[in-house]
Design a binder for these strands. Structure first.
Lengths: 115, 115
DNA sequence: CAGTTATATTCCTGCGTAGTTATATAGTAC
DNA sequence: GTACTATATAACTACGCAGGAATATAACTG
C-alpha cells in the first residue's frame, strides 16, 4: 500500500470492495460465531439472534467474496471460514481502536506524553 | 476476533465502521498518495484527479476516523497518515486477493492440488 | 478595504444495500 | 403423493453515503 507506482483504479476498487464486505456488524458477528468451526445457517441464526433471511443473505455475500466455504448435508448448509486473513485484520483493527482510545484517554487526563 | 466471549454489539459496530472508512476507492487512493509523507489538499486533488470538494470531504472522514493528522500552514492544510495499521491491512488484503486469484487460476488450469 | 487563493461546507441527486415479509426451493419423513 | 423443515430468493422500504455544483470560510496580498 506504499508502492512506488500507485495501484490502479481497478485494484483500488477490488480492495475497497473487500473492506466493504467486512464493514457490516452482522457480518462480523457471523464471522466471529464461525471462528474456526463449521456452523449451519440455523445455528448462526440462533447465535446472532438475527432474521433467517438476513443471515442467509449475509452468508451469500461472505461466500461470494471468497471468505467462506459451503457444505450441504441434507437440509442443512454448513459454512466455514476459509480466509483467516479476516481475523488477522480484525485483530489489527481492534489494536488500532485500543490505541486510539488510549491516546484519547491520555489527552483527557492531561498526560504530558500524550499526542 | 476469535474470542471465547463474543464481542459486544457496540464493539462490532466500531470495528465495522472502521472497515467502512476503508471501503471507498477514492479514500484508499488518497491514503496511498499520502504514504508516509505529508501532503496538502491541493496536491491530493491533483494526484487523484478528483473533485476538490470530494477530496476535502474524504479527508474529513479519514481525519475524524483518526487515520490522519492535520496541520495548517497559511492557506494550505497538510494531512498525514498517523495510523500505519492502514497499510498493514491493505497489504493483507492484497495478499488475500492474490491468493484467491491464484487458487482460481489453479482450478481453471485443472491443478490437482487446487482447492 | 477589495481581490485572490486554498479549503471546508451545504444542498441536492442518485445509487447501493441492510432489514423485513413473503414466497420459492430443496431435502426429509410419512 | 402430502406434510414438514432448512435454506435461499424476491419484492419492497428506508437509510447512508459518494459525487458534483454552488457557496462559505479563512488566510494572504496589495
Amino acid at each position: 500500500m506504499k508502492p512506488r507506482k500507485p495501484l490502479s483504479e481497478n485494484m483500488l476498487e477490488i480492495i475497497a470492495q473487500r473492506f466493504r464486505v467486512l464493514s457490516d456488524p452482522l457480518r462480523l458477528n457471523i464471522l466471529q460465531r464461525l471462528g474456526d468451526q463449521e456452523r449451519s445457517v440455523g445455528e448462526l441464526v440462533v447465535a446472532t439472534g438475527a432474521n433467517q433471511a438476513n443471515v442467509s443473505k449475509h452468508l451469500q455475500i461472505l461466500f461470494r467474496a471468497g471468505y467462506l466455504n459451503r457444505r450441504k448435508d441434507g437440509l442443512q448448509v454448513f459454512y466455514q471460514v476459509t480466509d483467516s486473513s479476516i481475523f488477522e485484520m480484525c485483530e489489527i483493527v481492534c489494536g488500532s481502536v485500543a490505541n486510539q482510545l488510549q491516546a484519547t484517554l491520555d489527552v483527557v487526563r492531561g498526560d504530558e506524553n500524550a499526542e
